[in-house]
Design a protein around this nucleic acid. Structure first.
Ligand SMILES: [Mn+2]
Ligand SMILES: [Mn+2]
Ligand SMILES: [Zn+2]
Ligand SMILES: [Zn+2]
Lengths: 143, 143
DNA sequence: TTGCAAATGAGAACTATTATCATTTGCTTC
DNA sequence: GAAGCAAATGATAATAGTTCTCATTTGCAA
């Protein structure tokens, strides 16, 4: 595990507490890259860590504001978070199994900037979600 | 007002009822193109029409399933609906005033298809939302 | 008209999330 | 290391958006 976690928190202006370290750890060395608050909460519980759900929500929001995590609003109404690695990307979400795949396309990005500026908008950010079915892949829920 | 509304409903396999006609009317001749359930409910109330909130939600979902409306999930957690005019488009949302502008870009659309199919996904649909500030436009909330 | 399945409306229930507040914990200072 | 204290936590209440339940009403076909 990453011994610099307390530093990561300090650098972000957050004091190093048990719940924060556990949650950051889940993202830094977890197998799941995209997790909702509920996902995080359940993982903590099942690994015996006793963290309140309110704290999970609070910490996720703080991490987002501190730039440690990025939040996405996928369909379905719940926020999903992932480690902020400084590289913007967009997502393909499988409607059968929920599998999330990432992609980045410079052409799409530049078209967006162009379109927005032509129309007199100063872009803050954007979200591009492609909802699809895995056809060639292993999809645990589909066959 | 559109005298063919009952036909529109019939064609969609929905029987022509008072709440359905009122709601469809709001979208067909309303000034607001993108409306949430709450928006629709409030408009009905303020025009003296007594429709239950549950009915509004039910009817909006039925209209979506019937292909009369399209639903979008903008940030903020509430669904927004608009008349389905058969032309897919994406949205720029002003973070100051909430103004929504529509755009369509063939290059972006085809890049998306390409990316998804290269990775073995069969696209159902997608959403592209650009969050921005109106800089050249009239923004009632900004200045 | 009558009959009845379909639709509606009031309110309960549910889901995701935020707010409240008494208790606990991570530093700082002695 | 112990004391002090602001910041953080956790249990739970509250909120927002939406769906469910079920008794009553309505559209429409006979
Ligand atoms: Mn991602
Ligand atoms: Mn639109
Ligand atoms: Zn992008
Ligand atoms: Zn598009």
């Amino acid at each position: 595990m990453d011994k610099n976690q307390p530093e990561h928190l300090k650098n972000a202006g957050l004091k190093s507490t048990v719940p924060r370290l556990k949650i950051l750890g889940l993202f830094e060395l977890g197998q799941e890259r995209h997790m909702s608050a509920e996902d995080v909460y359940k993982k903590l519980l099942s690994s015996g860590d006793d963290v309140g759900l309110a704290t999970v929500y609070r910490v996720l929001t703080q991490f987002e504001q501190a730039g440690l995590l990025v939040r996405h609003y996928f369909e379905g109404g719940k926020s999903v978070f992932e480690l902020n690695q400084g590289k913007h990307h967009d997502h393909i979400v499988c409607l059968q199994c929920g599998h999330v795949e990432e992609f980045y396309d410079a052409a799409i990005e530049s078209r967006q900037k162009k379109i927005a500026s032509e129309r007199g908008f100063a872009v803050h950010d954007h979200s591009l979600h492609i909802y699809a079915d895995c056809v060639k892949k292993q999809c645990p829920y589909k066959q």
